[in-house]
Write a protein that binds this DNA or RNA. Structure first.
Lengths: 207, 207
DNA sequence: CGACACATGTAACACGTTACATGATTTG
DNA sequence: CAAATCATGTAACGTGTTACATGTGTCG
């Protein structure tokens, strides 16, 4: 649903052609989510089929220009007005993985958590570094001319912040899981769950 | 990729049949991510095609039992050992939406943020309520017999915590966006971006 | 000329959801 | 008996990725 509406949103601003749409999308999101060009065309086909966009003739350059219809405008405004689907939250692969690991005897949950934490911390550092670079860049742009590009820089900054916030939350959750597991292992002195009673972090995931 | 590996993980514990796999998955994740039964069967077909699982004959009950192969065991252990794909982070529809809204003249970004914040806060309250209920339930279970079911309760608790952490981060980010926009509107006294200079929160998304 | 970016597509496949068909067993 | 649950599938469709085919224009 994301891409369909993203293309509609861009077309709501002005008519564009396929290749151009990919460029605009990636520029505004800082290439965080690369957009396959093939899908742009197939999505445009479907949007045209559903009468949300229209093909215009050539623009004198030989490009296949699409423009949004009234129905499309209604659709995209509805997208902006509605919060993203509160029901059935997107599958969180990490949460699923840990939940399953917890219930499996021959998986070292601590090792899984550690591996993930290392990767997430590295990601977080990358994002933070990029954020610093982007901020200074946007700053110089701001003191410069106020033409185009500023809104895109702003969007990219906020997208980066989103990634940072999300990754921080992930790391916090991983730490929370570790603490929880340590507490559980400690209170499992005699009976309870012998399979979970290895609190020290071995390196191997499999016992 | 999530489901394929989840089914493999469950089969690594013991051979099971399709309907049973769905039940186990949903129990361990607290029905957070409902699993379509149709997909279980098609996924099992693909897993069998790829020689990661095998069909066993009847179990005396007429059920179609699947068991994991050595290749499947290798696959699932690799899944646990590897951190979830650091490259190309999953598309964040909310971030995309806000990034695009920022660059579109006729969208009221504040209204979009407000609508989302309301929805996310409500979600957060739901999760917190569920978390309280689940915690007391797990508590009584713990003081009771230490049989099966505890690991599943634990998994469900951690999944809930994951949802809470994620949603909290989302709300924080939304607030961050609001603050950022307010600051930007304030510093846009004369020139800069006139289209973004409406800081007060109207109710309508479209101007 | 050769490599590269621009530009438009098509085909095959993976993954996921919804809906439908079919039958057995259980339960009010 | 009727309804619900258990159980196994199939079909259609939407969405997304990868890879391929094809052609133009530009630049070193």
């Amino acid at each position: 649903m994301s891409i369909k509406h993203s293309l509609l949103a861009l077309l709501a601003e002005s008519p564009r052609y396929g290749y151009q749409l990919r460029g605009e999308f990636e520029e505004r999101t800082g290439s965080t989510w690369p957009l396959n060009i093939g899908q742009v065309y197939t999505t445009l086909d479907r949007l045209e089929r559903d009468a949300l966009v229209e093909k215009e003739g050539d623009d004198g350059e030989g490009h296949v220009i699409y423009s949004i219809t009234d129905a499309g405008r209604t659709e995209v405004m509805g997208w902006f007005a509605q919060p993203v689907a509160a029901t059935n939250p997107p599958r969180n692969e990490l949460a699923i993985k840990l939940a399953l690991a917890l219930t499996l005897a021959d998986v070292n949950v601590s090792a899984v958590v550690q591996a993930q934490r290392t990767a997430s911390m590295k990601l977080l550092q990358d994002y933070t570094r990029q954020r610093r670079a982007a901020a200074t860049h946007a700053g110089t742009q701001l003191s410069g001319e106020p033409g185009t590009g500023n809104a895109n820089d702003a969007a990219w900054l906020l997208v980066l912040d989103s990634l940072i916030f999300t990754t921080e939350a992930e790391v916090r959750w991983l730490d929370h899981c570790e603490g929880w597991m340590a507490k559980r292992a400690a209170s499992a002195g005699t009976a309870a769950k012998p399979a979970q009673a290895r609190a020290t972090a071995d390196t191997a995931v499999v016992k």
